[in-house]
């Protein structure tokens, strides 16, 4: 039975989604443009194109923290949007079931990101 009053957990999920979506909207295009297009094509240097610069960057705790937040935000936006979109196109599983799957995937991916960032030299 649903309790009276606002669903605070749902509100928290939406607030996290809004903040994460803003962050990803601001920084993700730059990452993809430099690391995914310009860097591999050799048009500009990019920090992940050589081990020495990549390791030096990842060795910085501020970079680790920043990347962890960006990974977490990206995966949260993925989970939240996919959950509700699947619901809207009638995929079976219900709101809770789809939430468990999508948030579970996002949580797992964020944990993997944390592990990799903490264990990279």
């Amino acid at each position: 039975m649903r309790h009276p009053g606002p669903n605070r957990l749902e509100g928290l999920f939406w607030a996290l989604f809004a903040q994460s979506a803003v962050l990803t909207a601001l920084v993700i295009p730059a990452h993809i443009l430099v690391q995914g297009v310009l860097g591999p094509l050799g048009i500009v240097p990019a920090f992940d194109q050589h081990y020495s610069t990549f390791a030096a960057g990842l060795g910085n705790w501020l970079v680790k923290l920043y990347l962890f937040i960006v990974f977490g935000a990206t995966f949260w936006v993925f989970a939240h949007r996919v959950r509700y979109t699947l619901l809207e196109i009638g995929v079976p599983g219900g709101k809770q079931g789809l939430g468990v799957v999508t948030y579970g995937l996002a949580g797992l991916a964020t944990l993997v990101a944390a592990y990799l960032l903490l264990t990279v030299p």
């Binding site: 990803t24 993700i28 993809i32 990206t74 995966f75 936006v77 993925f78 939240h80 949007r81 996919v82 509700y84 979109t85 991916a109």
Partner: peptide, 8 residues
């Protein structure tokens, strides 16, 4: 809505 998928 599905922009989140390729980005992820």
């Amino acid at each position: 809505e599905f922009t989140a998928v390729p980005i992820a």
